[in-house]
């Protein structure tokens, strides 16, 4: 039995262990991995960068903690960028486990803006969190008529009309764009119900698993930009010139992918050798 055939019969747990060791070792090593910025991420960055003081964007935190790894870095980068441009943010979550996470995200960003950008972000004046409501399609459609239908009050039970930022907002007509960060069917509802029905601009940040499925919407102009997975977040961080967890993770991604590709190559060589010898190929 040669090396390739042995590799073919290797217990998969050794592969897991090797991958874990490579990932941890790379994470503990300090080096920067260059990231090439794609057009679809650049278009979101340019849109946010073009916002004027007082413009309002809607950010949808429509993911559960299981997608936090990929979408949280996007949320931090986009929201910090928008607040730095003096834009205002309406935050909602239509994902059942997202409310606590979204609140923590907002509070973290308010702190970061104060410490790192020397900006005093006031809840209610610059940013508002409307909280969670079930049945996302109905909520998205209702917000197109009036935000007060699905959200009569915000996350902290304050009546919407008494919140300064919401006093000038009736529906999507007063919103420059929806930046939807999601990990499920809610994204389709934003495209179908908000963009197709009410014509509001939609930009997407999605998990890596979903990214390939949303490129057709980008080409047809139904969305203005697309950030796919951790790479999309790293690209945005690079444009924003504030490397965060996604940029740091890129070097780990590269080393992990190299290991996986090597295993695929060795596995295939072993497969062809076994087949040539007439042995079992399974």
């Amino acid at each position: 039995m040669n090396m390739f055939e042995r590799l073919g019969k290797l217990d998969r747990r050794w592969i897991f262990l090797l991958l874990a060791v490579v990932c941890v070792a790379t994470l503990l090593t300090e080096f920067r991995m260059p990231v090439r910025v794609s057009r679809e991420v650049r278009s979101i960055y340019e849109f946010v960068d073009s916002l004027k003081a007082g413009d309002v964007i809607h950010v949808g935190i429509d993911y559960d903690p299981n997608a936090l790894a990929e979408l949280h870095p996007m949320a931090y980068a986009v929201m910090e960028h928008a607040l730095k441009k003096d834009a205002k943010i309406v935050l909602t979550t239509l994902s059942q486990n997202g409310a606590g996470m979204a609140e923590q995200l907002m509070l973290d960003i308010i702190d970061t803006m104060k410490v790192q950008h020397k900006k005093d972000i006031k809840y209610g004046r610059d940013i508002v969190f409307l909280g969670y409501k079930p049945y996302y399609s109905i909520v998205i459609l209702s917000m197109g008529e009036n935000y007060r239908i699905p959200f009569p009050s915000d996350y902290y039970n304050t009546i919407l009309d008494s919140i300064p930022i919401m006093q000038s907002i009736q529906n999507y007509d007063q919103i420059k764009a929806v930046i939807e960060l999601g990990s499920g069917n809610i994204i389709d509802a934003w495209i179908a119900d908000a963009n197709a029905r009410y014509g509001v601009k939609v930009a997407l940040g999605v998990t890596g698993v979903m990214a390939a499925d949303y490129y057709p919407y980008l080409r047809s102009g139904q969305i203005i930009g697309l950030m796919g997975g951790m790479l999309g977040a790293a690209e945005y961080e690079q444009l924003f010139q504030k490397p965060g967890t996604a940029s740091e993770a890129m070097r780990v991604q590269v080393s992990a992918h190299v290991v996986i590709i090597l295993f695929i190559i060795f596995g295939n060589i072993g497969f062809f050798i076994s087949r040539r010898k007439g042995g079992s190929v399974v």
């Binding site: 994470l27 890596g208 796919g228 951790m230 780990v252 992918h257």
Partner: peptide, 14 residues
């Protein structure tokens, strides 16, 4: 993209 997503989850936990 799926491979990248799965590795991302692991990286975040680490």
């Amino acid at each position: 993209y799926t491979v990248m997503a799965r590795i991302s989850l692991f990286i975040q936990r680490v």
